[in-house]
């Protein structure tokens, strides 16, 4: 919807700036940036969906979610390196992250459901350290190589003459497809009913004969798989290295706080909001300040403000709705 509005809105004003071609913000650039924001948001959604699901169903703050993202990327890089198949690498990454998630749930997390949030944070933070050093142990200290396969590399020309990397188009598509699948799973399957029931009243669900601990393992593995898939897909265009999960984890927390903790729909809206704010803020805020400031000062003020933009958005959302956009709990 915004993608359509962009060109129309900005068709008039640039005449004034035409002599400053280097700074000229064309309609194409704006649409491209919106696509970038969407793509970033969709990837954030995959991370945030698992995080919010785990928090919603089990009440667990899982700081180690970023480590599962990292595991996905490393496994994908290792499998792609060994077999040359990108698709197989994605599948293995998904499975490996799910298995790692299930093991972590059974060995560690299970003991933490009754514990305070602070204990959970402490234990899952310890898991980050264990996973990071373990990954270095297995794969070494240097970044790993994971490349986009030939059939997905290069740029495509979208309607309107926009050149956009094919892989990123694929990321948007794959992310939305996973989101749709998740929605169908939760709204229309038996497992989904149990997950939703578990969110509302876990004692009652257990009393009704649902094996709650198996459900928890399943949800945790599902969240882990989403994180692993997202790590593997993003790994092809970013650096596969130890500690790559933590920056994304922080953003994912911002997303679920904005969206409302426990809400998948909130995670989607929050992720797109954060993705668009972050991308468009980083590009247009410095330009905005250039209208009334010296370029050097405008760049530094604009960049600084852009780094803060998603946190400003988060604060505003929390002032307006303290439980997040779609949050039910007080």
């Amino acid at each position: 919807m915004q993608a359509g509005a962009g060109p129309g809105v900005f068709r008039g004003p640039p005449r004034l700036q035409r002599d400053r071609t280097a700074r000229h913000m064309s309609a194409i650039l704006i649409v491209e940036q919106i696509l970038n924001g969407l793509q970033f948001g969709v990837m954030l959604f995959l991370m945030a969906a698992g995080l919010t699901l785990i928090f919603g169903v089990m009440g667990l703050i899982n700081l180690a979610h970023g480590s599962l993202y990292m595991i996905g990327a490393f496994v994908a890089a290792a499998v792609a390196g060994a077999t040359g198949s990108f698709l197989l690498a994605m599948i293995c990454a998904l499975v490996a992250a799910a298995v790692a998630g299930a093991i972590v749930e059974i060995v560690v997390i299970r003991r933490l459901y009754a514990a305070e949030h602070l204990d959970q944070v402490l234990a899952t933070f310890a898991l980050i350290l264990i996973f990071s050093e373990g990954t270095r142990w297995v794969f070494g200290s240097f970044p790993m190589y994971l490349e986009i396969p030939d059939y997905l590399s290069g740029a495509v020309t979208l309607p309107g003459g926009i050149q956009y990397p094919l892989y990123r188009v694929m990321l948007i598509g794959a992310g939305l497809a996973v989101g749709l699948g998740l929605w169908a799973l939760i709204e229309h399957t038996r497992i989904g009913i149990r997950i939703r029931a578990g969110e509302n009243d876990r004692e009652m669900v257990a009393a009704l004969g649902v094996d709650i601990s198996r459900l928890y393992t399943l949800v945790f593995a599902l969240g882990a798989a989403l994180a692993g898939l997202s790590g593997a897909m993003v790994g092809a265009i970013q650096s596969v290295q130890v500690g790559m999960g933590e920056p994304v984890l922080i953003l994912a927390f911002v997303v679920i706080v904005i969206g409302g903790i426990g809400s998948i729909r909130g995670a989607l809206v929050g992720a797109l909001l954060v993705g668009l704010t972050d991308t468009l803020g980083g590009v247009f805020l410095p330009e905005l300040f250039k209208l009334f400031m010296a370029p050097a000062a405008a760049t530094s003020v604009g960049s600084a403000l852009a780094s803060m933009s998603i946190y400003i958005v988060m604060s505003l959302v929390l002032i307006w709705r303290p439980t997040g956009l779609f949050g039910g709990r007080a």
Partner: peptide
């Protein structure tokens, strides 16, 4: 152009545009 990115930034789609 002169652009300052975030430290630790991993996605440069916006800057490439």
């Amino acid at each position: 152009g002169e652009v300052y990115t975030k430290l630790g930034q991993t996605d440069y789609a916006a800057e490439i545009a």
